[in-house]
């Protein structure tokens, strides 16, 4: 690639504001102290796609997600949602944090957590209407947790906690869903329930981005993949980007050649 081409490509990326593109990240760098956790990552996610963010532990997958949402400060770079900065399109973006990031002994019931997804649209005194409660119930229904609405959240299993978090995001009725390890440590039935909801979201034309840890299911669950290890290694359709050279580069010596060969087998 010549110098001129390089400039043209980057110029195109930085300059354009595409309202159709759910999330475009340019030169994103995040650092805790002097050591970058995410370094100069450029990528864009396509509308109506299911995207996996994949990389080893400490590769900056969750940090990338938190930085584009403004939860952790960016050192450099920017993220545009539907061509706009996050602050102006909050209502179109829903975030599902890691389950372990909250205290599950907090005094709320399942339905109260789901209602949090509606807090921005509540009136000045934050009173919930019958309509809000019906909507929250419908979201619980979608994740198969309708019977648990009045349970204290501390009584749930890990998979059920994850379903509640997903229901809260569903209540926001967003166009872009960002999920941080939604399938980590959940039971098989919950994994199926969550994937079925995410596929429904996709078929409605919404975009789903997951930080994902299980390399074995990347092929069967996702359309696109972003491989990172602090820097971006590769992005694009799973069929082309999720190859052994890129995986080797992402995981280094941590992934044996036989393991990679297994991953290349078509799923099922």
């Amino acid at each position: 690639m010549s110098d001129v081409e390089l400039i043209a490509r980057d110029g195109d990326r930085v300059g354009r504001k595409d309202p159709e593109c759910p999330l475009a990240i340019d030169g994103l760098t995040v650092s805790y102290g002097d050591k970058p956790a995410v370094f100069s990552v450029d990528t864009r996610f396509g509308k109506g796609r299911m995207v996996a963010i994949v990389g080893p532990n400490g590769a900056g997958k969750s940090t990338l997600m938190k930085a584009v949402l403004g939860i952790v400060p960016k050192l450099a770079g920017r993220a545009l949602f539907f061509g706009e900065p996050f602050e102006s399109v909050r209502s179109r973006v829903a975030y599902v944090p890691q389950r372990a990031s909250v205290d599950w002994d907090f005094p709320v019931r399942v339905i109260d957590v789901v209602l949090m997804g509606l807090y921005r649209s509540l009136g000045i005194f934050g009173m919930t209407s019958k309509k809000d409660i019906a909507k929250a119930h419908a979201c619980l229904e979608r994740v198969g947790m309708a019977d648990f609405a009045r349970r204290q959240i501390g009584q749930l299993s890990g998979g059920q906690q994850q379903r509640v978090f997903l229901a809260r995001a569903l209540a926001q009725d967003a166009d872009l869903y960002l999920l941080d390890e939604p399938l980590a440590g959940v039971d098989a039935a919950t994994e199926r329930a969550i994937m079925s909801v995410l596929k429904d979201l996709k078929s409605e034309g919404r975009t789903v981005v997951c930080v994902h840890h299980d390399l074995a299911t990347v092929r069967s669950y996702f359309d696109d993949v972003l491989l990172i290890n602090v820097r971006k290694i590769a992005d694009g359709p799973v069929a082309s980007a999720f190859n052994d050279r890129n995986l080797q580069q992402t995981y280094g010596g941590r992934l044996g050649a036989t393991h990679i060969a297994e991953l290349q087998q078509p799923a099922g």
Partner: peptide, 12 residues
């Protein structure tokens, strides 16, 4: 109090 990271994305 329950979920500060989520609160931040909600604009709180």
């Amino acid at each position: 109090a329950f979920d500060p990271q989520y609160a931040e994305t909600m604009g709180f």
